[in-house]
Structure formats: structure tokens, C-alpha cells
């Protein structure tokens, strides 16, 4: 662990934070901050800007601090709980989703910041071995720059990424984002259909 020397266990850190003890938060940031930052960079560097990655890290600790009383050892270690919060924080930024920072969530005893956000989000499960999925992944790489960026942001965000954010990054209009997204979907669908029509032995 990064906080070499500390003997305080994770459940005590969570308890300290639930009691609003800043020292608990400091221990959490010292112990897991480096790996949480590394996680965000590894998974989201291609779709989030440097400042947004820093924002995601701050939001991760903000939610761990706010909802420390919701953490239970039964739902995994404190580290894995924080990783899941970090994943949600990054997705919220991609979708410019602010409602998960709302104050009233603190009064919802069932809310866990590590839970998956939407029903639309891909549920955890087995990876598909359908060859069309791999073909689709390759087809995305060949899309024009803007279309590729939109599709990658949508996939990383688990839904439609915010058009305003994408427009600002790519120096275009929201309308252009909507149109490019539709074009990308149509191109990908057409390519996958062509791929499916090929005999299995001739697919490339």
C-alpha cells in the first residue's frame, strides 16, 4: 500500500470518514489515490481530457466521503468500492451528468455511489464471442475522426455522451455531433451486415 506504515484497516477508514473525520479521508487518498488515478488514466485517457480526469478523481473521493456510511465489507473491499465509484465518476463526466452530485442523495439510504448508473448501461456479464463484435470494434477504428470520437465516448460513458461537451472539444456544433453519430451508426450497421453476408471462411 502507498501509505507505508499505517496500521489502520479499511473498515476503520470508512468509519472515520462516516464520522466526518478528515484524517480518514487523508488516509484513503494516501492509500488509494495513486491507484485510482492510474485506473482512470488507463480506462478513460482516450476519451477524457487531462482536467476531466482530475475532476473524476476528485468526484471519486467526494462520493466516497459523502457516502462512507453506505460502505459495507460485504460488497467488496474499500479499494474495489472506490474503483467502481471512480468508473461511475468518469462516466458521469462523459455524459455531463450532474444529478449524482445532488445533495438530496444523502437522504436516500439505498443509494450507493458504486452501483451501476442506468438500466441502459451494459450489465456485467459474459463477453460475447460473436465475431461481429470484434469486426465492429475494428470498423470503429476506421471511422472519420469525429465519428470515431463520438462512438468511443458513447461506449465509455455507457450511453449517449454529452453533445455539448463533444462539440466544445471538437470545435463544432451540437447538431454536427448528432448528425455524425447517426452517420456512424448507419455506417457501422451497414458494414456489419456486409460482414454477416460473407461466408465464414472468407471473412476478413
Amino acid at each position: 500500500m502507498a501509505d507505508h506504515g499505517s496500521t489502520i484497516c479499511d473498515s476503520d477508514i470508512a468509519l472515520m470518514m462516516a464520522m466526518r473525520d478528515k484524517e480518514g479521508l487523508r488516509l484513503l487518498v494516501k492509500r488509494y489515490g495513486g491507484r485510482l488515478k492510474a485506473f482512470l488514466y488507463k480506462r478513460f485517457r482516450s476519451v477524457l481530457q487531462e482536467g476531466e480526469l482530475a475532476e473524476a478523481l476528485n468526484v471519486t473521493f467526494y462520493n466516497a466521503w459523502r457516502f462512507a456510511d453506505r460502505y459495507t465489507e460485504g460488497s467488496g473491499t474499500l479499494a474495489s468500492w472506490c474503483i467502481r465509484i471512480a468508473q461511475n465518476a468518469a462516466k458521469d463526466i462523459l455524459k455531463r451528468e450532474m444529478r449524482y452530485r445532488a445533495k438530496n442523495l444523502e437522504y436516500d439510504s439505498t443509494y450507493d455511489p458504486a452501483d451501476p448508473r442506468d438500466e441502459d448501461d451494459a450489465a456485467p456479464g459474459e463477453e460475447s464471442d460473436d465475431p461481429r463484435v470484434e469486426y465492429l470494434r475494428q470498423a470503429i477504428q476506421k471511422l472519420p475522426t469525429l465519428q470515431k470520437a463520438i462512438i468511443e465516448a458513447d461506449l465509455a460513458g455507457g450511453g449517449l455522451a454529452d453533445a455539448g461537451r463533444l462539440a466544445a472539444i471538437h470545435g463544432t456544433s451540437k447538431n454536427s455531433i448528432y448528425v455524425s453519430r447517426i452517420k456512424a451508426h448507419e455506417t457501422l450497421k451497414r458494414q456489419v451486415e456486409q460482414f454477416s453476408r460473407q461466408p465464414a471462411g472468407k471473412r476478413r
Binding site: R43, G76, S80, I83, Q87, E127, E134, L136, R137, L155
Partner: peptide
């Protein structure tokens, strides 16, 4: 397709075990 791809690319919500 997006759901299948998200899983393949590691963007599906992580379970506690996967997160660990």
C-alpha cells in the same frame, strides 16, 4: 451492439470482484 462492445472494451460496470 453497444452493450456487447462495451463489455469487450472493458466499459461495462465492474462487479466488486472485477474491480478488485
Amino acid at each position: 451492439a453497444a452493450k456487447d462492445l462495451a463489455r469487450r472494451l472493458g466499459h461495462a460496470p465492474l462487479t466488486p470482484e472485477e474491480a478488485q
